[in-house]
């Protein structure tokens, strides 16, 4: 589904952050990308979602066989790539519901599905809200405005549930969550696992992986994947810390 080959990318000030990433993600798989701060984890998510301010200098990314890199951020989203933001953006004045419906209908049109009318939309919303224990008064506010940290993260997962992407990129979704919120968010994510949907979890800590069991774990360091393995790798990292990377290198 997602094929990344020798991906190099730099940020606007010229620093190269990604230095040759190779990654294959198949439908139904959950991959976890771990690594120390500054290893390029969030950059990878940003580059895949098409965030401005990054330049791909080498390599290729295909998504369902289609070249992803020339596509604009909204086109990638409509192709089925969903980025759950590490820091969801507050947009005062743009109503959450209005925003979500605009996004959902944009995605549906792209898939050749008809727009949802207000009634159908509301029904779909209510069902998903309940699962994530989101208070519906949040929906009447501006996008992410006045949300607590945990509410913002739950709202991201709620949006993912509504938009039903093929690939979910979850950037540090566990950061800033207490244990109850983490369980709630993880349950939400687990419910969205399906044979046709892949997920890439980006995380610094192993604790998210206690709740969401990945099929593959990769360790990113210095802009490259330096180690890959199954879920046992996470436990080892937890025990020995990222310092083990240096030991391995030496």
């Amino acid at each position: 589904m997602l094929n990344i080959k020798n991906l190099h990318a730099k940020i606007t000030d010229g620093r190269e952050i990604l230095k040759g990433i190779n990654l294959d993600v198949k439908p139904g798989e959950v991959h976890a990308i771990m690594g120390p701060n500054g290893s390029g984890k969030s950059t990878l998510a940003s580059v895949l979602a098409g965030r401005p301010g990054y330049e791909v200098t080498e390599g290729s990314v295909t998504f369902d066989g289609k070249d992803l890199l020339p596509l604009a951020a909204d086109e990638r989203a409509r192709e089925g790539i969903f980025l759950a933001f590490q820091y969801p953006v507050e947009i005062p004045g743009v109503n959450n519901m209005y925003f979500l419906r605009a996004a959902l209908n944009a995605v549906r049109r792209h898939r050749g599905q008809p727009d949802l009318d207000a009634g159908q939309f509301l029904k779909a919303v209510r069902a998903k809200l309940k699962e994530l224990e989101i208070n519906d008064d949040l929906l009447q506010r501006g996008v992410n405005v006045g949300f607590s940290g945990g509410e913002k993260k739950r709202n991201e997962i709620f949006q993912m549930a509504m938009l039903e992407p093929k690939l979910g990129l979850l950037d540090e979704t566990d950061s800033g969550l207490d244990i109850d919120a983490l369980r709630l968010v993880s349950n939400g994510i687990n419910k969205l696992r399906s044979p046709s949907r892949a997920m890439v979890l980006i995380t610094h800590y192993q604790r998210l992986l206690d709740y969401i069991e990945p099929d593959h774990i990769h360790v990113l360091s210095g802009g490259k994947i330096v180690m890959s393995g199954d879920k046992t790798l996470a436990a080892e990292l937890e025990k020995r810390g990222y310092a083990m990377l240096d030991e391995t290198a030496a």
Partner: peptide
């Protein structure tokens, strides 16, 4: 705001529409 534009676009909303939504708000 670039971040707001990207957030909207990352949810599938076209740049023109995103721009319009932000100006209207």
């Amino acid at each position: 705001d670039e971040d707001a534009m990207f957030y909207l676009e990352a949810r599938g909303i076209s740049p023109d529409e995103a721009r319009r939504m932000l100006i209207e708000a």
